[in-house]
Design a protein around this nucleic acid. Sequence first.
DNA 1: ACCTGAACACCGTTCAAGT
DNA 2: ACCTGAACACCGTTCAAGT
Lengths: 257, 257
Amino acid sequence: MTFKQSTTEKSTCFIHKLLSNREQKIANRELELLNVAEKIMIHEGFSGFTMDKLVADCNYSKGTVYNHFANKEDLFCALSIEGMRFLISLMQRSLNIQGTLREKCLGLFYSQRLHSQIHPTSFLCVLMAKTPAVLERASKARLEHQIILEQETTALVDKLLSTAITSGDINENRKQHEESLCFALWSMSFGSNALLINAAEAKAVSRLDTNNALLFNINALLDGIGWKPLSSECDYQQSWLRIGNEVFSKEVSALQE
Amino acid sequence: MTFKQSTTEKSTCFIHKLLSNREQKIANRELELLNVAEKIMIHEGFSGFTMDKLVADCNYSKGTVYNHFANKEDLFCALSIEGMRFLISLMQRSLNIQGTLREKCLGLFYSQRLHSQIHPTSFLCVLMAKTPAVLERASKARLEHQIILEQETTALVDKLLSTAITSGDINENRKQHEESLCFALWSMSFGSNALLINAAEAKAVSRLDTNNALLFNINALLDGIGWKPLSSECDYQQSWLRIGNEVFSKEVSALQE
DNA sequence: ACCTGAACACCGTTCAAGT
DNA sequence: ACCTGAACACCGTTCAAGT
């Protein structure tokens, strides 16, 4: 079987391909394990997840599972990493929307909200990875991987911001605060989504029209930054719907079923 | 001893006082337990905390500890509740600042940041209480108590917002969105502080001037809401320092030691 | 009515033995 | 070189016995 693979791949470097195939196999198994883990969490909640159940539901032994993940929290971190990968793919797609730069920015926020709705458990893992319980115990390698992915999202936002500044949609005297702008967007996105999902019982959330709360928050922030066109000059509710229809039509209609 | 207490209290209702004393004793013990728990978390991290260690470090048995807390997560929730109580006391004090209504609003944000700096572990408990692990397992009574405290903070913000609207500092056409404004403030506060503390390693945070990041975010949001005077018309950095000096001088100087 | 701590069940983690 | 699962240590939780 190993031989078969190496020939079908017509590799010029047999050993390299062999290694790479082995690595591929391990990576696939890891994804398989993460899938099983997520399923357990979906059905039994986070507190219902145990390593024993994971071993019972997959075809590998405890030792093999612990070969992949240093400990339980490391596995949470791995799930968070997969969640971020998915989020980044949504973010990249969202930038394809036809429209102003501010609408593209809306697309980035839309992506995170969509992630939280399509894969709530995955999204919760991303939130949990920012929790001391995970930060204290996950392996160094995994935590670093996560930082790299965060850097990717930061790069996407940075690029959009500097385009907006050079194009004049954001006043150029904001250029010296570009990093602050990026952090403000992240904070608002993180805070809004975390509370909308995990504080749904709180009066300050339950009394809201939760469908528009996020957009309201973004509009307030982007108006405050002075990102043109301001929300008074443009119907961003329309833009929000357009992002759903034009970029994420498949995902949105799947959600509504 | 019971008799002694009841006479020194010169109660008109002996039985009621007895009960109330007993209840007081139980409440005191609970605070004592929470104090010990917090100390363990400070010294050994969240993942280092166990119920066994709590029992070892206090003078009560396992059964008694479990009389207070339904389970470990319930104890986390109790710590979060104490954290919120402390936060609310800071928020109330912060409203005493002399100045505009927007400066009072700054005081509310200042309170949360101060909480995260004076009692980091307590603050982290408040964040953790918004995590599925805790939400899934804490007792109903405790979760409800927390909702009530959240309602108190919401009420403080609501009151300030409606004063600002009637006084004209916020345009009165915002009146219909008062709840949205409240949620926007909460989201920004929650998101900024959570990330400043738990994502310190991320490039988007580490490259910041963390001392001014929160104020930058608030200013952007409040400008976007159109809360007068705008940040272009007023030196809020000065206000921020003033809040520290005038309302929280003791806490701030203790921090700088 | 409340407290106690031994006892239990379960969970996370390891590692000697196997392939 | 990697996989296995029995074994272990520890942790969370309970409850019969005690005051």
